[in-house]
Design a protein around this nucleic acid. Structure first.
Lengths: 342, 342
DNA sequence: TCTTCTACCGAAACCGCTTTCGAAGTTTCG
DNA sequence: CGAAACTTCGAAAGCGGTTTCGGTAGAAGA
């Protein structure tokens, strides 16, 4: 169909190439794939013919035989979130170079819809599946009886038999605290987001652990409520009231950290001289635009996506994927909110 | 391949169904597709057999014959940008309900890479193509001789023979200015981003037109430099210096507007009482988190994506797509930065 | 010169499905 | 009761490749 556009060139097939090269389709196929016994001269002739016609093999025909499609499904539960984007980029990147293309599906965070999408992807005979969570909390498994390898990213599967790739939030919390300690801070407070999120709890745990290791005590309780600047503003004002001698605040996200910066500024506290501030996620729109620019922990989501793609890739080549939750260390990015720019 | 998971069920084929139903594959095919002459009883028997084996036709085999794949390529030049996401969601949404799946490709803003991806998508025999620009500026056409319908979104094609769907930035500028005028503002300044962007120029034009229509003159020159909060801060400080009696600032983006809010706050000007501020894009992370919350113009990107998908859909059904640039009106979202919350 | 190897090529089967077309079986009608 | 008109089904071709396997021609060996 689709004689949509006038110039629509009928797809050139292998037999066209074979005819032009004066050989059979069988020989043409072997010549192009470097398989079987083909004389060097013939091979060249076929290659040239293919080049001239700009022949591209029909992946459906290939897939039909091979049982492979060269496609991977990317199932996300929430396209809204800004987290899936870098992951998606990383995956697309790792695959894109090769012969694999990515089917994108958004389940809108709805389990029914997810099942539906899953079915659609499987009926398309995708070779693998990447499931991207919208938060770092563990999510239900898709089950073990799928005909293709599955890798869970960002949010792990609850089932330890599945393969999951996540960013290590405990380590992130620890690294944030250690950085502040290494800057000579000792009166450290922690303000974070919704405690219903694993990210909030994990980061808080990391902070506490690092402080305990250093024999330092957290200033006040962990203040946890929601992932917003407004909360960052009000919470840090509480911190300043209760413990005026605070000299650093670990904020559960960059957004909360921005709120903290606002409050500190209004209160006349210099950042980082009087109080250092550090966030999580390293979200450019937040960290680069604030005054001063914000130190943060970068979860390297793109790397996560790339790693997931490579896992699936390996599984396609017959390697067995290693079950369990694999964590990836975040990266500390130091900016003006913890270390005065010279 | 992929005996990855133990339960991996070998894909059930039509002949399995036919055998179970005691008919030939031909009859089975016709029965399931409601084509040809098949006795009602037979049809039921086949349907039941298919159900029982949970048969799903292999789309590659179908595609091989039909020439259709039920897939659409989404070619974006920049996955970084936050603009493509809602568009993508909209498209995925409109398609998702049906039988179409989306191939996602990121060209990284590289023309070579784009050609490569395009080739890959065509070789996959996608039925249609949606091209999403990373900015609103017109982009080179992919050409007229493609075998599938193409719709350009967000950034139009330079070729008027192509079909493009964009958000109307001139109208957006006009609406922003009109809103401020209707709030009784008359000393209106305009600060915007990189004048190399069509978005900056179009919005500025809209603002100027609306003011001219009302017989009001813009306060000072349009200040244009870059899309950042820092620029928003410094530019509005310039505005305050040069024209202290300014009572409203149209900012070329929400980010710039946030910068303006910061400066106004530091300068002790009340928003919106003394100076009203309005931005563009309606980016939640900006508009919802600022003090006060920011009025803005929402380009309705999701709607744009949905519309694009519908165009492609229609084209698949044989309808001819209408060439030219189709614009979509933005939506004014009023918040505390222009109208004091009661 | 005649056999025996090689090296190279092509006919044909096949992947899973759709579609055409002819062969049955059934019914209707003269 | 036989012919015509339906109805229902299946054999087979084909979509565009890959792969097996047998055939042919030229080279090497006897």
């Amino acid at each position: 169909m689709s004689t949509q556009t006038p110039g629509a060139p009928r797809a050139v097939t292998l037999s066209d190439v074979a005819r032009l090269a004066g050989v059979s389709v069988a020989t043409a196929s072997k010549a192009l794939n470097g398989r079987g016994d083909v004389a060097a001269r013939t091979r060249v002739r076929v290659r040239e013919a293919a080049e001239q016609l700009s022949f591209v093999p029909n992946p459906m025909a290939q897939g039909l035989l091979a049982g492979r499609t060269g496609t991977v499904g990317l199932l996300t539960s929430d396209l809204q979130g800004r987290f899936v984007l870098p992951i998606l980029m990383g995956a697309e990147d790792a695959f894109g170079a090769g012969q694999v293309n990515v089917f994108l599906c958004d389940a809108r965070g709805d389990a029914i819809r997810e099942q539906y999408q899953l079915k659609a992807l499987l009926s398309r005979r995708v070779d693998g599946l990447i499931v991207v969570g919208s938060r770092t909390d563990a999510r239900p498994s898709l089950g073990q009886d799928l005909p293709v390898p599955v890798v869970y990213v960002y949010g792990p599967s609850v089932d330890p038999a599945d393969t999951s790739l996540v960013s290590d939030n405990v380590a992130a919390g620890r690294m944030a605290a250690e950085h502040l300690l290494s800057c000579g801070r000792t009166r450290i407070a922690h303000v974070t987001g919704d405690p219903g999120y694993a990210a909030a709890r994990d980061r808080a745990r990391g902070v506490r652990e690092a402080l305990a290791d250093a024999g330092v005590e957290l200033v006040g309780d962990v203040l946890a409520s929601e992932w917003s600047e407004a909360w960052g503003r009000s919470a840090s004002s509480v911190v300043l009231d209760r413990t005026p001698d605070v000299d650093a605040i670990v904020c559960g996200s960059d957004q909360i950290a921005r709120g903290a910066l606002d409050t500190l500024r209004d209160a006349g506290r210099a950042v980082p001289e009087d109080v250092a501030v550090i966030g999580f996620d390293n979200w450019d729109a937040m960290v680069e635009q604030s005054r001063p620019r914000l130190s943060s922990l970068d979860p390297n989501l793109m790397g996560l996506g790339r790693a997931a793609a490579q896992q699936v890739f390996a599984a396609l080549d017959g390697e067995r994927l290693s079950p369990g939750v694999h964590t990836q260390e975040p990266r500390l990015v130091i900016r003006g909110s913890t270390v005065a720019s010279r």
